[in-house]
Design a protein around this nucleic acid. Structure first.
Ligand SMILES: [Zn+2]
Ligand SMILES: [Zn+2]
Ligand SMILES: [Zn+2]
Ligand SMILES: [Zn+2]
Lengths: 164, 164
DNA sequence: CTGCTAATGTTATAATGTTGCAAATTTCGC
DNA sequence: GCGAAATTTGCAACATTATAACATTAGCAG
């Protein structure tokens, strides 16, 4: 059994990216939505690691690509990707991360490591139901739930424990 | 029994503000922290309603006051108020709201009405424990938990139900 | 091809938040 | 009280994040 979730341990990340892109193509086809080259490239960049990436970071890489892009290009692509459930915006960081549950209906909960910056997206049914229940007690009708947990991932906790 | 939580129904809001300010003075005294006039005024402005207020909105009112303030004035006051648990930042809105549980240790959960803009802060022990448990399952050490629920408050849901 | 729609390019601007340093105020030991 | 030290504020410039408005191009149906 793995002692750590994927983002925190070495792995063939190219496979992560390849799978994400393949699923994205699939999902867009199902949605009759066009995963244009710009959109696909932005998705690929967002997936370049398990750390969230800012819109202007994406923009900078596009510029390196030789793509003559301005902020709206990136924001539009990110809007599209969010709409189709391919990326999430982490509002406590003003940054974006690839969705690891694309296609499935889910309420993400994000564990954000303050030390290494990696983000793990969980589907936490217990949390979702607790939130729904708490909202219901106030007769509140939830529409969109944001759960972002900043803290320390297992790897960074361990390193901090036996450092100098 | 009240059919709605405080923010959603008419009430003597001046009393809310007065109580919040009184508690703030108390808490700051306990913390040996100085609730200076600027800080107190900013807190009062944040409490002007149960809707979150942006930093630049605060700044604009300070300007009307004749206070010659620049952004750092506001952000510093807000940092101070957050540090002492008197206001919360709602990161999905880039805005600030007065804490309704100041002094007590709590994990806020915010119900944000998309229609009227009011925000209700709850202490939801069930949610907090579910989050802690989910994090523990990933050996993640939580430090700060953000839970923001956008949706429709009872009042606005009711109005939408019998509108034209 | 033609005409429609979705997508992108382009420029400018808005909104939000920070850095760095100097001046003023408050605190506190004496 | 008095002066050094620390906290708080004023101020100017700047950095980052996001959007508005309008022109242009690419994709597609008939
Ligand atoms: Zn990976
Ligand atoms: Zn997701
Ligand atoms: Zn009130
Ligand atoms: Zn609170």
């Amino acid at each position: 059994m793995p002692t750590s979730a994927l983002p925190y341990r070495p792995h063939n990340h190219d496979a992560c990216v390849a799978q994400a892109l393949a699923e994205a193509r699939d999902i867009c086809q199902q949605h009759h939505a066009r995963l244009t080259p710009t959109r696909e490239r932005v998705l690929e960049l967002i997936w370049q690691s398990h750390k969230p990436l800012g819109a202007y970071d994406v923009l900078a890489v596009l510029a390196e690509d030789g793509h003559n892009a301005a902020p709206p290009t990136v924001y539009r692509a990110l809007d599209f990707l969010q709409q189709h459930g391919l990326v999430h915006r982490i509002s406590s960081l003003n940054a974006f991360i690839g969705c690891t549950h694309a296609g499935k209906s889910h309420n993400g909960m994000f564990l954000i490591c303050r030390s290494c910056g990696n983000v793990l997206e969980l589907t936490a049914p217990g949390v979702a139901s607790a939130v729904t229940k708490a909202a219901a007690q106030e007769s509140f009708r939830p529409d969109d739930v944001t759960i972002e947990v900043a803290g320390y991932c297992p790897r960074c906790s361990a390193e901090a424990a036996h450092d100098g």
